[in-house]
Design a binder for these strands. Structure first.
Length: 255
DNA sequence: ATGGTTGCTTAGCAA
């Protein structure tokens, strides 16, 4: 069971890349973030030619998440349904092959101490509450997505340069940890305790050419599922070539 | 402090 997360940064701009990547890699589940398009703009070829089931929670211009799977997706939920007035499409969940799959695009947070920063921290608190209310840490579940936080300095190529940013500062890491403490394991760190593996490089300032990367895209699993982990991967090559996303696919394989 | 790039939408925002 191969489960992958990928912030595609516009499903329209990346349509050819998405379809080619799916065709070559055939994940059982693919969680996408930053569709930047309404549901009707999702490429029908994923369903019609590549035989994926597709559930989207799109939004015009910004955000937007989706789950693709090779087997049916049931019990689909869009948004946290917590009564907060929030028009941003950032969470979709569904069940595939007995595994609850939660796909999130966590707010970036803009600049420290901005309104967007407050929204990010509040969103993390809402996610923790939603997990407590809607999910079960003793059952197989993955929480996949762009978390817009590095868990620790091993996940940052240049920690001094990034330490005060919304992706690295301690309040952000504490907010992420609050979600992890619900009952999740970072699958990548089960298999690799070394620094130097990243999932995002800024388009600006030659971020990828200088390997000025951060690991902010993760596949978290509950403990009963993490026990079935057989491998993890980060598809760094997907950052190369013509018009890449600024993020690459990150995956985990379970027996 | 600012810059640099990309995408959506068409001058400015978000990342």
């Amino acid at each position: 069971m191969k489960i992958v997360t990928w912030n595609i940064n516009s499903v329209r701009a990346r349509q050819e890349r998405l379809l080619n990547w799916l065709d070559r890699n055939t994940p059982d589940v693919l969680c996408l973030q930053e569709l930047k398009a309404p549901d009707e703009d999702f490429p029908p070829a994923a369903e019609e030619e590549l035989d994926y089931y597709v559930e989207t929670f799109g939004q015009k211009t910004y955000n937007g998440v989706a789950i693709l799977a090779r087997s049916p997706i049931t019990d689909v939920v869009r948004g946290m349904g917590d009564g907060v007035d929030d028009p941003q499409s950032r969470l979709i969940a569904g069940t595939v092959g007995g595994i609850r799959v939660v796909c999130v695009y966590v707010p970036n947070g803009g600049e420290p101490d901005s309104d967007k920063w407050a929204y990010k921290l509040a969103w993390y608190a809402r996610l923790r509450a939603w997990l407590e209310r809607s999910c079960d840490p003793t059952q197989p579940l993955v929480l996949c997505g762009d978390f817009n936080v590095t868990p620790d300095d091993r996940d940052v190529a240049r920690p001094e340069e990034w330490k005060d940013t919304v992706l690295c500062r301690s309040e952000a890491r504490a907010a992420l940890q609050g979600v992890v403490d619900w009952g999740l394991v970072d699958t990548f760190r089960l298999r690799n305790d070394q620094p130097g593996v990243y999932s995002w490089w800024d388009y600006r300032m030659l971020g990828f050419a200088k390997d000025n990367g951060l690991r902010i895209d993760m596949v978290y699993a509950t403990r009963p599922l993490a026990e079935r982990l057989t491998d993890v991967f980060v598809d760094r090559d997907e950052r190369k070539g013509q018009r890449p996303s600024d993020h690459v696919p990150v995956g985990a394989i379970f027996s």
